[in-house]
């Protein structure tokens, strides 16, 4: 009987809702929440040895501590398979499941089964290293998701290799080299003929797509406009109070600059991708608060938004970057900001 460790957040761990998202991880030597139903679908091939419950906020904001706890449980329980979620479209829960997958699959070499909605920001980080079952965007899809996840867990318990098309999980994006019935030059000529005839063709090596975004309308009256300053240049208050990573950022920071004439004196750079000397000497060279304050005094712009937003751009996963953009954009929109100066390094 293979041993399965089940990971859930505070809500599915039946501790609480958003109000309990800050709770530290707890381990219960029993099946809790979705794990109970899951246990009945294992066809005697595996059993649930316990449920690890952790608050979504805790996992993201105290990442090192959460992982340390998970590491201890791993050493103590030695699971053969780990199941996490499903997280549906809950962003922080999805990112937590991805973090769990990264630890178990990459460091501990233990296969991980999870489930989430296709737009969950956690998907990109874990689809290649774990078996992610597509789910609906709400918990209503639990009844449908669990059996598919269980089937994969049973296959893993039997030592079989799950296959995306048969077992219903997201293509993991693993580019496996196999033999074709046609040599490369034949495939090339066939593709060329399709293109010459204007027919559909499927490239064997997709280029990263290039996004395009609907441009915002121009600001009509700049003298009344509120302009916000945002940067990915890793400019933070001295001592980096929120511990923003110097590369592969997991979070962004938001600081009140309404009483400042410039960032110089209070801010420094923690960005790992460029020579820090010039930014530490004069941080406004990366995020020009002084110039915006100057324009406000001249009446060229209405006001400088109270909060300055910052993170580190280098090595940050696309999934996270998109998440940060959406979160910061939402706050600025709700605050009635009219325009944003975004600087990058």
């Amino acid at each position: 009987m293979k041993k399965i460790l089940y990971y859930v957040n505070q809500f599915f761990g039946q501790i609480g809702g958003e109000d309990q998202a800050h709770i530290a991880p707890v381990y219960k030597k029993e099946a809790v929440g979705p794990a109970m139903g899951f246990a009945k679908m294992l066809e005697g091939e595996a059993e649930i040895i316990g449920t690890l419950i952790c608050g979504d906020n805790f996992f993201n904001e105290h990442n090192e501590e959460a992982l340390a706890f998970i590491k201890d449980i791993n050493e103590q329980e030695k699971p053969d398979i780990v199941v996490a979620g499903p997280a549906f479209n809950a962003g922080r829960y999805g990112v937590a499941c991805a973090g769990v997958a990264e630890f178990f699959a990459l460091e501990a070499g233990i296969p991980v089964v999870t489930g989430m909605y296709e737009e969950n920001p956690g998907l990109e980080a874990c689809r290649g290293i774990s078996y992610v079952v597509p789910t609906t965007d709400s918990a209503g899809g639990m009844r449908k998701a669990l059996p598919t996840m269980a089937k994969i867990a049973v296959k893993l318990a039997k030592g079989e290799e799950p296959v995306a098309e048969e077992d219903g999980f997201f293509l993991r994006g693993i580019r496996e080299t196999v033999f074709s019935d046609k040599i490369g030059s034949e495939r090339a000529v066939e593709m060329l003929l399709k293109r010459l005839r204007g027919e559909e063709f499927e490239t064997e090596l997709p280029m990263p797509e290039f996004d395009n975004v609907e441009p915002a309308h121009a600001i009509a009256d700049m003298s009344k406009a509120v302009i916000a300053l945002v940067t990915t240049g890793g400019i933070v208050p001295h001592g980096n109070p929120d511990h923003i990573q110097s590369a592969s950022a997991q979070k962004w920071g938001k600081y009140d600059v309404s009483k400042l004439e410039m960032l110089k004196g209070d801010y420094e750079t923690i960005h790992g991708g460029y020579d820090p000397v010039y930014a530490n000497e004069f941080p406004d060279r990366v995020a020009p608060l002084d110039q915006l304050v100057h324009l406000k005094k001249e009446g060229a712009i209405g006001d400088v938004y109270k909060y300055f937003y910052t993170t580190t751009g280098t090595g940050t996963a696309v999934g996270n970057s998109r998440k940060f953009g959406q979160e910061i954009g939402k706050e600025l929109k709700e605050a009635g900001v009219d325009g944003v100066i975004l600087t990058s390094t």
Binding site: V213, P215, A216, G233, G273, Y274, D275, P276, V277, Y278, A279, F282, D284, R285, V286, A287, P288, Q291, L342, T343, S344, T345
Partner: peptide, 15 residues
Amino acid sequence: ANRIVPTVAIPYPVG
């Protein structure tokens, strides 16, 4: 990005 201002250099874009 739809409005782009090319800057000076990576360690000091606006300076």
